[in-house]
Write a protein that binds this DNA or RNA. Sequence first.
RNA 1: CGGGGUGUGGCGCAGUUGGUAGCGCGCAGCGUUCGGGACGCUGAGGCCGUGGGUUCAAGUCCCACCACCCCGACCA
Length: 408
Amino acid sequence: MYQSHIFIPTRSTPATDEPSKNGKLLQQAGFVDKLHAGVYSWLPLGLRVLNRVSAIVREELNQHGAVEILMPALQPKSLWDETGRWEKLKEIMYQWEDGSRHHVGLASTHEEVIVDLMRRADLTYRDIPQSMYQFQWKFRNEPRAKSGVLRGREFLMKDQYSFHASAEDLATYYTGMQAVYLNIYKRLGLDAHVVEASGGTFTKRHSHEFQVFNPAGEDRLLRCEKGDYIQNTELGTPTVCPTCGGTMVEEKSIEVGNIFNFGDYYGTTMRCTFTDQLGKRQPLFVASYGIGITRLVGTIAEVLADEKGLVWPSNVAPFYGHALLVGKVDDALRKRAEAFEASMPENILLDDRDVSPGYKLKDADLIGIPFRIIFSARQGEHVEVTERATGTTEVLTVDQARAKLSAL
RNA sequence: CGGGGUGUGGCGCAGUUGGUAGCGCGCAGCGUUCGGGACGCUGAGGCCGUGGGUUCAAGUCCCACCACCCCGACCA
């Protein structure tokens, strides 16, 4: 990809009204554009990252037997009335009456829709368990959107719902999902911890959050100084670790996932049942699993960025290599750089713009592609390859540089 | 939703007792330059957030509204 052909509106200075690191850098580097509070356009680079994060999540879920679907964001009031959530969520749910006098809302979550779907499927014990997920834009009228893309009013979420014949079967799958989630975070370069949490409106104690310690977070966790014990402050504030007696310290963290075990709540409340081996109707056991994809991108930006700009791990980076034509460029040099780009056009961004070297170098730092490859008269037939994260530089042949990127 | 702050070219900002709307960056053209956001010359670009009011005269004073930001509350 040629940089002159892709829309990357970088700025020399960050927005002054954006205090969060992720929001500041994602905007300054041209990954996102803020339209209004908590609502962003995802520009070419940002969308690439978003898609790569989604791909990793998708891959992990598919391996755990989940299947992708897509449900509507626009939903009727009647469904939500069954659980009383239309009223309960009216503060944060966008709700209105349309031109035909129908009451509709934009979904912030999809339990009601999928439970309705499953109950109308007339399931038998042979049909379950089932686990389905979607990637979808959620809407929440946050009273105060903040922290860049970490808390938006419109955000991309992977939400997933599993249906089981028994509490035991659900528990097994639910536990498995915890491992899947931890694996996802690991692949994204994030050090996440499972924490027991209050379940919000519907479940008490049957919810787990996945937390990444970071000063930009809005949650506060208590962490044992000595061991791994972590507890959410929502559940009270012990000063001593219950497992080892060590001192508990409060730290901020970002919630990067939340899973809920609803037991038979939906099965009974919405009469979502299946027929068992004896021909009897039994309530289904339901759990849901959420990961905010846009929040994940923000978290990665927040955690890994340095004072020069963004730093992307190679498995979510928008490109593997950022090739820069630097200095006085003659035809032969340009041809070499273009051939390099042509060999891996999807993974190499070639800065072919007619701007000064310093301008290109600053932009490259800001954008944070894992490897920077400089084509310059100074290196002759060779290229200078610098790793963004470490600053480590080596002079390689073009073939060696290509091999390095191919290995990512 | 309470408290506080800010709205002026694309971005960042200045604008004094009310009296012709400015600066830096960026942008366009030409030339020079070419390894850490280069330089010169020329040039384009502004319902001063919106609506009312006071005044001979409003970016400036008054009222209302809107938007954005911060603190708090809230947070399937």
